[in-house]
Design a protein around this nucleic acid. Structure first.
Lengths: 290, 290, 290
DNA sequence: ATAGGTTTTGTCAAGCTTTTGTACAT
DNA sequence: ATGTACAAAAGCTTGACAAAACCTAT
């Protein structure tokens, strides 16, 4: 739910409104603070308590424990324990990302990404936070625990972040790579990630994105003469249908296929290289060879 | 209409008759001239003021603003402003943008966008540079003067810029708008532009983007309870196929359809509102009514 | 709703009409302005407040938050925070950065940097936010309006961010640039910024950092054979003392000097190039030539 | 839970200035 | 027609006040 109890970032509340929302009366809140240090709200200049959404979660935890039969002292200890922030490790970041996506919490997603990029750098975040989280989103959707709308929400948000990082990636003097999704293929995010890693090796990127007809790609290859063209597909059928066109394309440019829709036999038949699952590693390898 | 009173070609009038026709007493007309330079009537050889139909329009504008509650000084400023044409710097930016797109010149495109945003502000650039340029790209492609690869290149680049501006547009306390392309529809850029303008009015945006099944949209509507849902389509067939689902959706949320694929009759049949061609204006209107 | 009544561009209103439209009485509007700085309307020549449509939206936000139970002070804070969608872009970011530095507000500084990097990309932020802000910090310190400890605080924070961005910047196949501060020179941030821009052109960077003896640099040049070496200094004396060593260095590699400690005559004497004040532009130029 | 003091915030008033429609003398 | 004057309406600033909400301590 968006937040019946505590709107996402409505700012600190004074004790009256806060008590109303969490359903615990103000005197009791002060008592819990005095006795167990359950909350330590910041104060207004004049000394009024100001509570945040995090405090609301702590109170909720306290009430859960009380309902479960714990003593107040124990319940407070548990609630405090639970609400200690976990360290900003990579796995944790992925988990937090997922949780924010579930809530359609845009500011939250942006926050996790901000922190992660600042702490771990682009490449690590791509490989160990963003791509795993998106894979997980796909799985959860398949299992029915998550709706496609959340997948759409997350994709657009993350696409925006990656495109911002991609700014000016067409500039410079390195070898040029042409990146495109197969005709009919809409998943362009892993391709974006691939491009970013390649860029970090000094390559120039020309990104054609989702659903690119092979003829279009061929046109761009003739005009820009890239050192490499990458075509990605999640659906085997999409590429099968284009086998001939791809074969012709491979005569003009070094061609690489990637994505779960690409099989080794298919690549062998066309005589082109295939990138395996780990796109970040693959990009590093390509760049090294290239 | 204010020119009912001012016959079209009655020739120049002296202040007495003019005052009677525009319904503003002569003393006041002189005061407005002296204080705000609202009118600069030519003079007869003997020094009498001679007013034209254009002057009458200016006076009418002045009165409209006064009735709207503006101060006399401000009303005069507005009336004068309105009777002056605007410049064509924005058109030039659109032309330069197009030229850079033709060359696959990423840094160039980014540069033009940087300059334009800095000089004219987001809203003007959206409405008068980016959307016109993309429309032109579409036309040129239809005419064969431009390749689809350039369209892909430009779309991805501009999508990135708009998504960057969209950062944190889900945050805050304003009414929530849910934005999505019809199932099968891939053109999400004008929808992004629409969202940005709505955001500038304080709305919160949840963006589901391209190719969103109506069922998905419905799911998100139930969870987030937006004040408005917008579905866009460039292809009439895509919406026709979903008429029933849209009708159900319209029972849950205030629904608006947009894009060239939406016809007035279709909207009438569903009993929903339609947004016309100019998305920026439409967003302003929606925000005002909202 | 909040802008049914506020037509989009009717021009500024005085407080009476404005109060009527937003439904908040004039006394209260003035109180909110005085106490929380909610609005800062421009004034008529005689001192009357003139309100715009944007102000109306801010008031609407304030009322929403009040209805949600926030205290007036907090509601104003939220309304102010929210009403920064899209428009006051990069200049605004620089100003906010400076304000956070003054307050030793680390989270605030990181937040501004997060936002800026995510929305505008590295190069724009370096050139138009970070470097201007640091220059300003230096000026303010010289004028005594800012403490040296604030300068240290800002430097360390920003250095950390730039180093995070610099991850892996030695990788790839582009031309190599060797970057170092003159012996005794400790200011390495602008050199870092320079490196990042060069990197965005696909160059590889080897960063030797603060206080690098020329002999060390020479050694590195022999080993790595860079296409360019940059030495920076803020103090003329530091370079003067090394004139001979620099001359020898310039025979091995294309050498460029930068920083306020470098004079044109000195460069002419050594026959090396000098970079002028705007490092971002300079890097772009170098990269283009290189 | 109550008592007694403090902070916050909407409202009001007094005294003065600006703005603006209208009037008057030349 | 012009220039000046005038008075009502609307606004400005400063200061104050009282009800509501909150504080601590018993």
């Amino acid at each position: 739910m968006y937040s019946l109890t505590m709107s996402t970032d409505s700012g600190p509340l004074r004790i009256g409104e806060f008590a109303r929302r969490v359903g615990v009366n103000a005197e009791l809140l002060r008592a819990w603070e005095r006795r167990y240090g359950l909350l330590t709200p910041i104060r207004s200049p004049g000394g009024f308590r100001l509570y945040t959404a995090e405090d609301a979660e702590r109170v909720a935890g306290m009430r859960r424990s009380l309902d479960a039969g714990l003593s107040a002292a124990e319940a407070a200890r548990v609630a405090l324990e639970d609400s200690r922030p976990t360290d900003g490790l990579l796995d944790d970041a992925a988990a937090r990302l997922l949780a924010r996506i579930r809530d359609y919490d845009e500011a939250g997603v942006q926050g996790v990404l901000d922190e992660s990029f600042a702490a771990f750098g682009v490449e690590a975040v791509l490989g160990q936070v963003i791509l795993p989280a998106l894979a997980r989103v796909g799985d959860d959707w398949a299992q029915g625990t998550l709706d496609i709308s959340q997948e759409h929400f997350a994709s657009n948000l993350i696409r925006g972040r990656l495109l911002a990082l991609a700014r000016l990636w067409g500039r410079g003097g390195g070898p040029l790579a042409l990146l495109a999704c197969a005709p009919g293929e809409q998943h362009d995010i892993s391709l974006l990630a691939f491009g970013l890693v390649l860029r970090s090796h000094g390559w120039r990127i020309l990104f054609l994105g989702a659903d690119t007809p092979i003829a279009t790609l061929m046109e761009a290859v003739k005009t820009t003469e890239p050192a490499l063209a990458v075509v990605t597909s999640f659906d085997p059928a999409l590429l099968e249908a284009e086998a001939d066109a791809l074969r012709r394309l491979a005569r003009l440019v070094r061609l690489v296929l990637s994505g779960p829709g690409v099989s080794d036999p298919f690549c062998a038949r066309l005589g082109v290289r295939r990138l395996d699952g780990n796109l970040v590693a693959a990009a590093n390898e390509i760049a090294a060879v290239g």
